[in-house]
Design a protein around this nucleic acid. Sequence first.
DNA 1: CGATAATTTGATTTTTCTCAAGACGCGTGG
DNA 2: CCACGCGTCTTGAGAAAAATCAAATTATCG
Lengths: 220, 220
Amino acid sequence: LRLRNDRTGPTATAQLDFIGTVMRYPPNVEVYGEGEPTDYFYKVLSGAVRTSKFLHDGRRQIGGFYLRDELFGLDFGDQHPFSAETITETKVLVIKRSSAISLSARNPEVAHQLFAMTARELQRMQDHVVLLIKSAQERVATFLLEMADRNPTQEEVIELPMLRQDIADYLGLTVETISRTLSMLEASGAIKLATSRRIVLRDRSALVQLNGSEDHESRH
Amino acid sequence: LRLRNDRTGPTATAQLDFIGTVMRYPPNVEVYGEGEPTDYFYKVLSGAVRTSKFLHDGRRQIGGFYLRDELFGLDFGDQHPFSAETITETKVLVIKRSSAISLSARNPEVAHQLFAMTARELQRMQDHVVLLIKSAQERVATFLLEMADRNPTQEEVIELPMLRQDIADYLGLTVETISRTLSMLEASGAIKLATSRRIVLRDRSALVQLNGSEDHESRH
DNA sequence: CGATAATTTGATTTTTCTCAAGACGCGTGG
DNA sequence: CCACGCGTCTTGAGAAAAATCAAATTATCG
């Protein structure tokens, strides 16, 4: 236990790569369904994935987005609580859970990695709960900062792989509200909408201000 | 892995009891603070506990409620992401994490229990995320069903240990909305407010209807 | 029994959703 | 290369949900 600052980047899960199979999916395709057995988990090699869950009336909650080098489907329990779909064309590494477990029994490093990823997942989920009590502005600001921190490209340029509807369902808002809020943030000078999918952070401190969370300096 | 239907009730964590210390707290007292090291976790012996987190402007999110025989503070990472406070007068078993870990190394049953509790925690968190996109009626209905399922006393009588404000901060609503929604549910005949803290479920199917979640039959 | 906190109820405002229309972007076929 | 069509995104106007502000009622505790 006791690990928070693990980067768990490409090298961190490298040993898992040997027991995985590479698969390629077109956009908007299901990788696994809600309720399916958790026999496998996955690592995004390229592209992007979302996990989602539907209520009876069609409302959709997106549990999270997964970008390059991130693991998804690493669920406790015997069934996946969310389904997972590709957002763009995506290459994933499919890893047999039982293989990873037996590997981790022999290799403490792998066990450590799996634990770290699970911890991050729980952390992410907790942050998501806190996010969902915020105002629309705060949710969008938080989302942008989150994406900026994860995007390994440039510091202040976010390349969004997902549609507005995905963002809306992740933040518990409507597409219209997402759109309006982004326009408002642009008008206020906090961001620049280069294209609808490419967002430049112009004033990060303004976003941090809006984000509303207690913990930003206090976290590291 | 692969365990969903564990009850993890009193007997399930019995072996942990030997390495714990019993503590008694008055109501509304902090058991641990946000950001404190995760050296201990806890089991509620009697009373009730909430975990919470504050945003900078004072808004509070309650992560969860913990009733008799439930474990809390079992967090990944080196710091507790939420603080924990008693709701009523509460007796808790304080368990040293390192002791539990070394015990679980020798005793697979204990390892299994810790894993199961962590899995439940993640499950609960996921359900909480889904809850927070629902309407006020749906959130309250979901909350009541959740409490009814956890209350070991009578089938249809809920004894709420927490204030309306706690419920509000758990559901991401205001006290007024909680109160109004409960009144409305009473007017519709779904529940009866015996006292403000004692609620009788009169028409559980009406609540299940309102609850809105996909998974109710599909879960077992 | 009285004081204080908690809960309920009411009136109004704010926020976000819904419904609707227009603008934009991109790929395909002419 | 351009035009069309379709999906996506943005913007606007009105409606709905929940928050806020305020007051009245009820519960709790000494």
